[in-house]
Write a protein that binds this DNA or RNA. Structure first.
Ligand SMILES: [Mn+2]
Ligand SMILES: [Mn+2]
Ligand SMILES: [Zn+2]
Ligand SMILES: [Zn+2]
Lengths: 156, 156
DNA sequence: CTTGATAATGGAAACCATTTTCAATAGGAG
DNA sequence: CTCCTATTGAAAATGGTTTCCATTATCAAG
């Protein structure tokens, strides 16, 4: 029978099952950790958070699961230049959450932004179309990051 | 006396001396290697090319020099997702050669493009201005890469 | 609810690009 | 030409990520 409260299985279960993957405690826990933060976590970060919940989950599994999630398109993997990969849930139940980044080269802070994406999308589409034709290149995604000094690092 | 032929000291000598750095064989050789290619070389690539000319130059020095060149602004350092940094001369005697990249996720090919940069610059400036104000963020540079399948990987 | 095939896991070891160490070398000002 | 010290190169260390492989757990089938 369906549960009395409104708590059905998390929306991402279907994504795993649909892909032919098993639903496991580590996977469940890792996605949960990612879905509860807006930060850009490293594999180690995820491991530590996950470890508080199930101390037996290994770092290897965290790496494997994150890679799987990236493959599935559920997670974005970024390199902000600090020598370790950063991971972030790519979508919620509602859909994609594509965005770009401001990276502070002083303190390493990373700011998500979607504000100016409308104007950007304009040029992006134009550019992608032009480049596709010019180089006969099938564009599937893009990476846009701005570097500089953040609020806190500016004034001082 | 100045040399009889038109071969003065390479234009980048001044950049080193001006920065208070010594002009050495390894540095000379490394910049030469970079200036003779339009490819995106890894440290290992540079090392191998340099090794053919002066077999005594070490990989460590290649890393150190590339880092110095990046610091000096003479070289761009990129991450195309293959686990190693890629380097490329940022300017010639004439000036900057800033550009963006198309990265083939199938074969790893990287295409430079400057063609559509005019339209891009428009939005880029707009976006940078908007973001700067909105987040009080001092933008100094940006990274733009498009991913997809190249010419060769497309048709097949 | 069992069972069984096999997908998934976790600890340890391996990988591998990059960095650090440190004694030897060489650039270039004086 | 000399001397100070920036620079170099070999070897070892680092540190994030992968690989190995024996053990465990998922879940379709009965
Ligand atoms: Mn983000
Ligand atoms: Mn390039
Ligand atoms: Zn900052
Ligand atoms: Zn290709």
């Amino acid at each position: 029978m369906p549960r009395g409260n409104g708590t059905g299985p998390p929306w991402w279960h279907g994504r795993f099952r649909g892909g032919g993957y098993r639903m496991t405690i580590p996977r469940e826990t890792i996605v949960n950790v990612l879905s509860k933060t807006s930060k850009h976590l490293s594999a180690e970060d995820v491991y530590m958070a996950v470890h508080k919940i199930h101390s037996n989950i290994g770092l290897t599994t965290v790496y494997r699961t994150l890679e799987l999630l990236v493959q599935m398109g559920l997670v974005f993997k970024f390199d902000f230049g600090d020598g370790r990969a950063r991971y972030e849930l790519s979508e919620g139940p509602k859909g994609e959450r594509h965005h770009h980044h401001l990276v502070c080269t002083s303190c390493g802070r990373v700011i998500d932004y979607t504000d100016f994406i409308d104007e950007e999308i304009e040029l992006l589409n134009q550019t992608e179309k032009g480049l596709s034709k010019k180089y006969n290149f099938n564009i599937t995604s893009h990476l846009i990051q701005f570097y500089g000094q953040c609020n806190g690092c500016n004034l001082k």
